[in-house]
Design a binder for these strands. Structure first.
Lengths: 138, 138
DNA sequence: TCTGGACTCATACTAAAGTACCAATTTTGT
DNA sequence: ACAAAATTGGTACTTTAGTATGAGTCCAGA
């Protein structure tokens, strides 16, 4: 946040300086006018690059965006999705059952349904497919 | 590549137009000069963002780099690593055995050794840990 | 040449995982 | 309020996974 303020301050100062320069320019010759414009173009070009780099850095975790629409399309319920997340974390059925305060039987049912919906034969395959379908973060 | 040519062509045209505008501007009033500079700033700002976005897009695959040093440190052999990759692809021991032309017993041995080396209790947990350790691509 | 590491495989278990079926609640949308 | 979907859970079984142990082969380095 502090950097953003600094960058925008520098931008405004640069603009003011360039305005001054442009004002002087048409009192002298034509070449400096084009130089001014060129400078502005170059400066803002790199400013654009800089700003974008900062923005994309914070977008990185958004690369791990989950496609909620696809979850619906596959008919995966909230509870089933919770189980899927735990599976991808490497938990056993018993551990998931304890985490969700239900019986292992229930988890087995959820897992079985998940495998059908994800068209997988194993939970490891379910993890891979779920990540490919963007319904699980990488 | 075609897009790059198009973008740069558009840039040059924009520059020429702005040069024309600036030439007329100091024949009339001061306000249009600043408008011109502002336009150039805005245009090149977004051009910078656009160019940068294209560049960063091609950096993405480098994010999926595997740490070979860490594989050594954990004492994971080539064969074991091969098995690990297949596990992460969701294959069963039997399927891995067929893919590597060895018996299922052999794969079980490799998997057992892998779980110890990765300090995991299950193959799903091994996948998670391997990805965290950057020895498997996301 | 000898040795340790890597790879292979087998047997015999134990423990998870997964399937199939059924059934009782609970939630939710109309 | 009612039907449909979701959640829960049980039993009984089959199939994978994983452990433990032992052992034979092969290869590169001291």
């Amino acid at each position: 946040m502090k950097k953003t303020v600094f960058v925008f301050s520098a931008l405004i100062i640069a603009l003011l300086i360039l305005f001054r320069l442009s004002r002087y320019s048409y009192l002298s010759n034509d070449i400096s006018v084009e130089l001014t414009i060129g400078s502005i173009a170059v400066i803002f070009f790199f400013v654009g690059i800089y700003i974008n780099k900062k923005t994309l850095h914070k977008e990185k975790p958004s690369h791990t965006q989950i496609d909620h629409k696809k979850i619906e399309q596959l008919g995966i319920s909230k509870r089933e999705y919770e189980v899927l997340v735990y599976i991808s974390k490497g938990l056993s059925n018993k551990e998931i059952a304890d985490a969700l305060f239900v019986s292992e039987s229930t988890i087995k049912t959820h897992v079985s349904n998940l495998l059908v919906k994800l068209d997988a034969q194993r939970r490891t395959q379910a993890i891979k497919k779920a990540k490919e379908l963007q319904i699980l973060g990488h």
